[in-house]
Simulated assay, not measured.
Amino acid sequence: MTEHDRVPLAGVVGWPIAHSRSPRLHHHWLRRYGLAGDYVPLGVAPRDFEAAFRALPLLGFRGVNVTIPFKETVLKLATKVSDRASLIGAANTITFREDGTIYADNTDGYGFLENLRAGAPGWKASDGPALVFGAGGAARAIISALLSDGAPEIRLTNRTRARAEFLAEHFGAKVRVVDWIKAEAAMDGAATLVNATALGMTGHPPLPVSLRRAPKSMLVTDIVYTPLMTPLLEEARERRMRWVDGLGMLLHQGRPGFEAWYGVAPEVDEELRRAVLED
């Protein structure tokens, strides 16, 4: 029996990890396609991460998703890094290849774009400027994806302006920093609004903006999916604007890893959404 004749294992590595919905996602796909295999949550303390990570291929793992706080650290342990992971400066999907190569990729931006394409048919990043709230890891992946899909301008705002300026310098002239208190004015002429912060998530205050100055044609999306309808999305719905919730980003970002580890390209549908949201 060779290493890749074993029942395929994958998982998600983070600290903490109990909150992750990725196991529900991958278990649903494994059942749907009748595949042997498992996907397990792996809570690893930061001091133990490198040793634990290097042991995974020996234990039969074909790959893992990586979440907070290891998305940047894992790049140093990979032997091959995708262009998008390199540009973003973080990885969330690792594949342990048969030749011993550790391949690091970032599928967050892919998941973001696929979610919008599915939830708002006809939407394109090239439709016009995008206003992005937040300057953390998710925002980096989203900005990279929007630019690669043809966004003519990114208007970036963050409570700590210095973090936004760092990203603007990293991504170049198409990213313009907007003061947090002037974010509503930056909606003028924007085609897409993205909340890439935790504001609006259960246990957090809402994003402190109104959509009263937003064009009716603007698409509003939120990476938060607990709750599924954040105050921002509720307002967009009340104003009869296009909106897309954040759950699909999680679902779609899991597809490339699942295909690499288990050999099947999975589908995202309403049945999957229900399975992942179940309490």
Results as ranks from 00 to 15, higher is better:
Met201Lys: 06
Ala190Val: 08
Asp99Trp: 04
Ala120Cys: 13
Ala196Glu: 04
Ala164Thr: 12
Arg239Ile: 00
Ala185Thr: 10
Glu271Ser: 15
Gly137Cys: 08
Lys174Ser: 14
Arg24Ala: 15
Ala138Gln: 06
Ser86Pro: 00
Leu147Ala: 05
Glu153Met: 06
Asp179Thr: 15
Thr160Pro: 02
Arg163Asp: 08
Lys174Met: 12
Ser210Tyr: 06
Arg24His: 13
Lys80His: 15
Gly246Gln: 04
Leu131Cys: 02
Arg240Thr: 09
Gly150Cys: 09
Ala141Pro: 03
Thr79Ser: 13
Glu72His: 05
Arg97Met: 12
Gly60Cys: 03
Phe70Cys: 09
Ala186Arg: 01
Asp279Phe: 12
Ser148Lys: 13
Val268Arg: 05
Ala173Asn: 12
Ala164Ile: 08
Val268Glu: 10
Arg255Met: 11
Arg159Tyr: 05
Phe70Leu: 13
Asp245Arg: 04
Leu277Asn: 07
Ala260Thr: 07
Gly257Tyr: 09
Ala145Thr: 06
Pro121Cys: 10
Leu77Trp: 01
Ala236Leu: 04
Ser22Asp: 03
Gly34Thr: 04
Asn92Gly: 14
Ser217Tyr: 10
Leu232Glu: 00
Pro205Asp: 09
Asp48Lys: 06
Glu114Thr: 02
Val268Gly: 03
Val64Asn: 07
Phe53Lys: 02
Leu75Val: 05
Arg176Ile: 13
Ala78Lys: 04
Leu167Gly: 03
Ala55Val: 05
Asp38Trp: 14
Leu250Ser: 03
Asp188Ala: 10
Pro227Lys: 15
Gly172Arg: 06
Asp83Cys: 10
Glu165Cys: 08
Phe70Glu: 14
Gly248Ser: 07
Gly89Asp: 11
Phe171Leu: 00
Ser86Asp: 14
Arg6Gln: 15
Gly111Trp: 01
Val224Asn: 03
Arg163Gly: 10
Arg62Met: 14
Leu156Ala: 11
Leu58Ile: 04
Gly11Glu: 12
Asp48Glu: 10
Glu169Asn: 12
Asp245Glu: 13
Arg239Thr: 05
Val194Cys: 02
Ala265Cys: 13
Gly128Phe: 08
Gly263Glu: 08
Ala45His: 08
Asp188Thr: 14
Pro69Gly: 11
Glu153Pro: 10
Lys80Pro: 01
Arg255Ala: 09
Glu50Cys: 03
Leu75Trp: 00
Ala85Asn: 05
Leu228Gly: 13
Val74Lys: 03
Ala51Pro: 00
Trp123Gln: 03
Asn106Gly: 05
Ile68Val: 14
Leu207Pro: 09
Ala138Glu: 01
Trp180Glu: 07
Gly60Ser: 06
Asn65Arg: 10
Arg273Ser: 06
Tyr225Val: 01
